[in-house]
């Protein structure tokens, strides 16, 4: 019989330790660096964060200071522009560059808070649905299907209409719009992980439900969630600008980018710079975040990982 005979080599007891393995962060950076677009995006994002943090020092004027001698001044390189207002002024004489710089604070913190809100909610609901199964699972998932079926901006408008316009309510509304995506992702990842042996192993070792959920399973569900969170960050900035444009988000004179666009609506034909520069700010930010999200997906998505 072809079995392990009695004369087997002794178990190789000394397995060489080798050099210390690189830490997970260094390994991550090594892979992330391969994607040049992602690095550029990350660079721009860091620049934006710094801009937001030090807006008081960077911006040449306060965001809501009105200069009565300079309504609709064109940007510096155009006839009639001056270095006093590099990107021109709007209809009430406010410096557009300063408003964009201060507006980055709103856009970034809005994106961040929306993501944190829907990520927390989505992870909790998704884990509960995935672990409980049965009718709870069905009920939760059908509810999420209903939410997904409604166009995002429309849903956000409804929520804002119920709660009243304002920055925080708009953020809450957008968080609700994104919730189903996170719930579905978490649930799908949870179900995939639950069938794996290490979860059963933890169970046999006596792990309770909270431990199984948050210590055993959740860390293994994180990569797709991180990618989704980054990509949603950019759409959250966009949606917030849209709500602001519709007058349902940040209220004037807040220098939020979408609200700035809304204020500038009447002057689109007369003074192109009033709309163009806030629009460019939104565009570049969203582009940068998407590049970062793409890079993260390349590194974190196990299906794309080459190793």
């Amino acid at each position: 019989m072809a079995g392990p005979p009695e004369t087997l080599p002794e178990a190789a007891a000394d397995i060489t330790a080798g050099p210390e393995p690189p830490g997970p962060m260094r390994e991550f950076w090594h892979h992330y660096r391969q994607n040049r677009g992602a690095v550029v995006g990350l660079g721009f994002l860091v620049f934006l964060v710094l801009l937001a943090l030090f807006a008081d020092f960077v911006a040449p004027h306060p965001p809501d200071a009105q200069y009565r001698d300079a309504f609709l001044t064109p940007p510096v390189w155009q006839e009639g522009g001056s270095w006093r207002f590099p990107l021109g002024t709007d209809a009430t004489g406010r410096d557009i560059l300063s408003r964009i710089v201060f507006g980055s604070r709103y856009s970034l913190s809005i994106g961040f808070l929306v993501i944190v809100l829907s990520l927390l909610g989505g992870i909790t609901i998704g884990l509960v649905a995935g672990f409980s199964g049965g009718w709870i699972d069905s009920l939760v998932m059908r509810l999420m299907d209903v939410l997904i079926a409604i166009p995002g901006l429309l849903l956000a408008l409804v929520v804002v209409a119920i709660m009243g316009p304002g920055l925080f309510n708009a953020m809450f509304a957008i968080a609700i719009v994104y919730l189903p995506h996170f719930v579905r992702l978490t649930r799908a990842a949870t179900l995939a992980e639950l069938s794996r042996d290490y979860v059963t192993g933890s169970r046999v070792a006596g792990a309770g439900l909270p431990r199984l959920m948050f210590v055993t399973v959740l860390p293994n569900c994180m990569p797709p969630l991180i990618v989704q969170a980054t990509l949603s960050f950019s759409t959250a900035v966009l949606d917030m600008a849209a709500l602001g444009f519709l007058g349902m988000g940040a209220q004037p004179p807040t220098p939020e980018w979408g609200t700035m666009l809304a204020d500038a609506r009447e002057f689109i034909l007369r003074a192109w710079w009033v709309v163009t520069f806030p629009g460019m700010a939104i565009l570049l930010t969203v582009l940068a975040i998407n590049l970062v999200g793409d890079g993260l997906r390349d590194v974190l998505d196990p299906k794309l990982k080459r190793s």
């Binding site: 794996r196 290490y198 192993g201 006596g206 860390p219």
Partner: peptide
């Protein structure tokens, strides 16, 4: 709890039985 401690398991697939994180 006491009984759980007295029975443990080793699985077939050593790639799935250890938490990768």
């Amino acid at each position: 709890r006491r009984l759980r401690r007295s029975v443990q398991i080793v699985f077939q697939d050593p790639y799935g039985s250890l938490n990768p994180r």
